[in-house]
Design a protein around this nucleic acid. Structure first.
Ligand code: FES
Ligand code: FES
Lengths: 148, 148
DNA sequence: AAAAATTCCGACAAATTTTGTCGGGATTTG
DNA sequence: CAAATCCCGACAAAATTTGTCGGAATTTTT
């Protein structure tokens, strides 16, 4: 129940990797990350795609393309990453949009869990990448240009 | 990744149920709880057994036997319940005793996650049943006696 | 003493979720 | 045009969670 999913693990590694070579400010491919950490290409690739679509990364299609961190990335919280990669964070499904919780009989959990769920989300909202990745200061990434 | 497991859900319901009829101070059977919430008997029964073994509940074998809350139960934290039912709470497996994490290649997650994991545990340690179940005050359960 | 009610326990089966793979399409570079 | 790369969804495999079963032990009731 509390293990990070691979999506989150791989994404964090990707952020860590890109943050380390930040001054370089170049486009990093999914392949490069997958090779470096020996993790499955397709999986990490999809994570990066989602993160790009959600606006946390820049992406550039084509040869010499890849991904790079987008300004403000270091202030993104684990809650945001989680919801990008996994959907809404909820302790019980009935708090979800589609409350498909089965044992509705006399279940008091939704009402009991709502405040708790709020606290949990707050907890992860306060954990931002800068702190999680333990970065001293974030070098300002240069303006995004075309690869060549 | 953040959905409560059924074990936790059923256990919380069981606590909730037993707390509600606290002044009665009688032995509650697994069957009674399973019937009341329409949840699978064997599953909730096993949870109660674990909780009893861990010292959160009293149990009494035999006809008219069952379970009852043990003094101090309301101060038990979600962390304690989690670890009784599911084992150690860890964001990544390598923080576990048997660090069987596969992608050890250059994975920086264990070192990054250790402080975070501590915070998470603290978070759940501070959530005790009294608060989670939203109890005003806990009626002192009477001394445990034999069923008859 | 036998029967009934109940906790206790582990092995297994089924269901669900997570993780990984594949086949292709679109865009850019050279 | 070919190569590199992002993009996307459908599917397969693996892992985990959830539920079921068959019993054994203990106590109460008849
Ligand atoms: S947890 Fe959703 S109805 Fe019980
Ligand atoms: S998370 Fe354990 S080695 Fe990467």
């Amino acid at each position: 129940m509390f293990h990070l999913t691979k999506k989150l693990e791989y994404s964090l590694l990707a952020f860590s990797y890109m943050a380390q070579l930040l001054p370089e400010s170049r486009w990093v491919t999914a392949k490069e990350i997958s090779d470096h950490y020996q993790i499955p290409y397709e999986v990490v690739a999809r994570c990066l795609q989602h993160l790009a679509r959600a606006g946390v990364l820049h992406s550039w299609i084509g040869a010499q393309g890849g991904y790079r961190l987008k300004a403000g990335w270091e202030k993104k919280s684990l809650l945001e990453l989680y919801e990008i990669l996994e959907g809404p964070m909820n302790l019980v499904r009935c708090l979800d949009h589609d409350g498909d919780c089965s044992h509705v009989a006399r279940c008091t959990l939704p009402v009991l869990m709502r405040p708790l769920n709020q606290k949990l989300k707050k907890f992860f909202q306060d954990l931002v990448l800068r702190d999680v990745l333990n970065l001293k200061e974030v070098i300002n990434e240069s303006k995004v240009t075309t690869p060549s």
